[in-house]
């Protein structure tokens, strides 16, 4: 039991108390990943909320052995990735009902003007460039350098070998540098 992290210990002790630990430990990485995947603040809130809800419902059915074997961060991000992929697939399947495209909105309504201005300078240009990458490179770069996951966890989340993760990351970075240089 010594190899268990505090989140797993809390989950084994009490499901609801454990959930609070799970949320506290991983809310930022789940939300950041959701935001940079979807590109919109409101979608990120939906994605992140649904991820934690499904995680809770899943772990409610797990026995102690399964909880002890859980690597909580890549597990959560795998759930997030599945929800996001299903949403993206559902969206592409049905034609857009409204031709008026909603404005791209990554702004938190509570964010201050200063912060927003700063984020716009550092954030938006880079997210635009990220959007130009092939999907496998974009996801690898995002999980490695925005979400700050180790390569081994990215391999779990994307279900690809570690070597492939590394090559997607390095190709993605190279491409970003080229694209960024052109601008």
């Amino acid at each position: 039991m010594d190899c268990l992290d505090p989140v797993q210990k809390a989950l084994l002790d009490d499901l609801d108390g454990g959930f609070a630990e799970l949320y506290g430990a991983h809310r930022d990485v789940v939300f950041s990943t959701a935001l940079r995947l979807s590109g919109r603040w409101a979608d990120a809130e939906d994605l992140a909320a649904e991820t934690f809800l499904r995680a809770y419902r899943a772990v409610a059915g797990y026995d102690a052995e399964r909880i002890a074997a859980l690597r909580t961060r890549p597990w959560l991000l795998t759930i997030l990735m599945n929800i996001w992929r299903n949403c993206a697939r559902a969206k592409s399947r049905r034609p857009p009902l409204d031709l008026r495209e909603e404005p791209v909105d990554t702004v938190d309504p509570r964010e201050g003007v200063e912060e927003a201005a700063m984020r716009r300078e550092t954030g938006d240009e880079l997210t635009e460039l990220l959007a130009l990458l092939p999907e496998e490179q974009r996801l690898a770069v995002l999980l490695r350098h925005v979400s700050d996951l180790p390569v081994s966890e990215i391999a779990t989340v994307l279900r690809i070998p570690e070597g492939t993760v590394k090559s997607h990351v390095s190709r993605g970075l190279k491409r970003l540098r080229t694209l960024g240089g052109v601008r």
Partner: peptide, 15 residues
């Protein structure tokens, strides 16, 4: 790395 953000304060109440 600067693209990472903190989860909004109200998120937990949606879950």
């Amino acid at each position: 790395a600067g693209l990472a953000v903190e989860a909004p304060a109200g998120l937990l109440d949606r879950i």
